[in-house]
Every structure is written in structure tokens, then in C-alpha cells.
Write a protein that binds this DNA or RNA. Sequence first.
DNA 1: TCTGGGGTCCTAAGTCGG
DNA 2: TCTGCCGACTTAGGACCC
Length: 476
Amino acid sequence: MDAFYASAEQAAKPSLRGKPVVVGGLGPRGVVATASYEARRFGVHSAMPMAQARRLAPNAAYLVPRFALYRSVSDQVMELLGRLSPLVEPLSLDEAFVDLEAGSTADDAASALKIGRQLREAIEAVTGLSGSVGLAGSKMLAKIASEEAKPDGMRLIEPGTERELLAPMPVRTLPGVGPATADHLRRAGMTTVNDLAEAGEAELVRLLGKAHGGSLHRMAFGYDDRPVVAERDAKSVSVEDTFDIDLHDRVRVRTEVERLADRCVQRLRAAERSGRTVVLKVRRYDFSTLTRSETLRGPTDDPAVVREAAARLLESVDTTGGVRLLGVGVTGLADFTQEDLFAQAAGERAAAGLPDGVEERPEAATESREGRARAEPGPEGAEQLAARRWPAGHDVRHDTHGHGWVQGSGVGRVTVRFEEPGSAPGRVRTFRIDDPALRPADPLPLVREPPDYSSWPASLPKSRSGAGASGTESRP
DNA sequence: TCTGGGGTCCTAAGTCGG
DNA sequence: TCTGCCGACTTAGGACCC
């Protein structure tokens, strides 16, 4: 999808169409998640610190992400992709590979282009947003094609033309080449894909290691046989928070770690998984990051067990100077079974030299502490309260004025623009933040009555040969 | 006002058991 | 019994992606 989050916000808020829109964290340490194409003209791009974006584009609209909205649009798009093939591999909310051969939906360039055109029309009709399509014989080339196609376009890479097409491109074009690898290669005199192809596999392996060097050499020739894989099992679950101001108080650090452990376990349980290795992540005041991990005797989804493992790991970390970010994660995931828990408890009693029936930590065996009152929130100003109750960009409903969204809040007031997807740009009104007629609301669908695509695509003649993949763009 | 959050994969060093 | 080798596993960090 093209500039996905920003495009979705523009579709939801008619007054923002054609205007620079930046979606991301609005706190003092936020970064840009997505900038609309209008904002990109000011030099704003993904992963840029929000403060820098504001300097470059002071008049842009700045919004926090609304994942519930993006997920619902994503579901609609993925449903369409699923009609093309049983093999759909989502990369994110707004990007996926589709194996058209496995779906027998296309067997040559002409039929691939036809299905690509139909797909783009379908996405536009159902979601109101534009997506770009890359068609090629492998995932790597389909991805490159979709990058070239955007915004709002389609690109096909014909088999046999890969080598010539890739040769002049910068090494960064290839998947897996980020800033560090590109720098490494540049110091060795390689800046284009052609340089990689000519360097030879042995040289690349020497520079980058066996796995990376080998795969890069193959990719430089356009060779990539990674299959499209549907249904990937998650391998880890983690949560992390960056604090607006560095934490110095050791007690506070400890309570934050416990909160994160609880949140991590909630996510773990929602996924009906358990995990065996607990990971603590600490980013210090100087941005240096370290991780500490501990592997348990067996998988767990007990919040007390994860909390205490994380707390033990914290003991081994020096936090003097301040903590910028804390994270807690769990890896070594297993499908949860009750037996795992009992085995874990018995094993720990044995390891602690405790007889059966003696519980080391009485409170740890229950979940009574889950959801308990957190550390008291510090004194919070009216501004922060208003911003939390009325986050910029979120939907609201007013008893007499109808559906709208929060344009801003402060000084006891909240400013709302009354408009909705499909309406004309709306009027702005201001209310007291405790106005009883004003309530938070769920996002409205971007297209009120989407056309019926339940019989799309019309079946094509079965074919034996030809491959295709399609990707849609997200973050350029 | 410098640098989010949620992941994946790879490498390298150390430990441990056979 | 001592030594060496090998593979599996654990831990930490780095790079990359969206």
C-alpha cells in the first residue's frame, strides 16, 4: 500500500487530502512511521525523529497511529490477495507476497499484468486506497518491482532481464543490505549490484560471512529461490517502552520491568503460547543497548515467573547514568500446555532443594497480582490528561454535531473537526474537555458500501508454467 | 528536543556431555 | 583415566526489515 498509514488517515479525514500528513509518535522521542507523499516533498521520511520532521514541515498534520483502523483495512486487502492464491505471505500490515503460480491465477506476463491491474482496481474499490504491484519470478524481484511501481503503479520484471536490470542499481537495493553492510561494501570498493556480481562469491563470503555473503552473491545475479510461505509461527514475543525522560530511580526501573513483563505475558497468552527464555533489554542514556537472557527449565506463561526472571536479569545491569528504554521479551516459544506449568513448578522446587508442597513464593503461584494497581502515576498536568483522553487524530462522536476527529487539545479545551470518510471537508468546533456530549468513537470504514468481490477473480484456464509474485509498497 | 516498536536471522564465544 | 573432538545449547550482540 502506498504511504499506508498516512493514506488511511487522509481517506478518513477529507480535510487532510492533498496536505502533508505525518503519522508517528508525538512524544519528545517519537519518530516518523509514515509520511504522506506531500510531506515527503519537505524531506520527511520514515524513521526520522519527529522533532526533525516538525522543523522540515511545520505546517503538516501530525497524528498518532491508529492500528485498529490500519488492521481492518489490511484484513480487507489480505482477503483479496487470498482470492488469488492459497500462498499469501504477509510481511506487515501493508505488504505481502502472493504466489500466483500456486493459485493458477496467472501463467505468463500478459495474464500476470491483467490480474495485477484487477487487483489494484479491487483494492481501490474496497478500501479507497491505492496499492502498488510488482510482478516477477521471485520474491526479491517482485519486491524491487513494487518499489519501482510506487506510488500507485505496477511494474513487471520479465524473466531474462534481471541481471541487466540489477547491474547498475546501488547495493542497498538488495534485501538484507542496510547501512552497515553498504558501508562495509563501499570500503571494499563495491557500490553497485554489478560490483557484487563481479567480486565473486569467495570475496563476499570473506567480507560478510558465509550466510550473508553467499546469499548476496546469488541475489546479485537475480537468483532467489525463497518460497512464498503462508502461516509463519511467531518465534518471540516482546514489548518495550522508551521513556520521555531517562529513568534514574532504581526502584522505578524495577517496577517498569515488572509492568513490561506483565504486558509481555498478556500478549503471549493472547497468542496461546508459552516461552522458555526470558530476555531483558536495556537502552541506556547514551543509546548503548544491552540484552540479558535466562532460559527456564520449561516453557511458561505465568506472569510471576516471567516477572521474577526479568527482575533477576535486571540485577546484573548497571543503570547508573539513566535508562532510556526497557524491554521484556520471551523466546523459545511452545504451544501452551498445563503440564508445562506443573513440570516447571516441580523442577524449581527440586532445584531450590524444597520438599514437595512447600511453595517458595506463595504469591507467585496465583495471578492475584495481575492487574493490580500500578505504581501511582506521577502528578500529571491538565495538558497531558487532555492529550490522553483526546489523542490527536482519534475519532469522536458529538450528540448534535455527529462524527469527527480530534484536531488538538489543551487548556481544558478539545478542538474537533466534524467530517468523515466520503464527506466534504468539515467545520472545526471547540469544546470543554469534559463536555458530556462528546465521546470517543470507533473509526468508520473508509468506504461505506464496498462493491462485492466475492466472485473475483473469474477463474482462468489452468496452467502449468510461469511464476509470479506481487508485493505492495509500504515504507520507501 | 536525535534516534519507536515489534520482529527475524546470523555470528561468535563459552559450556557441557558423549 | 586422560585427552581431544564434535555437536548441541546458551548467551550476547549486531544488522536488517517494516
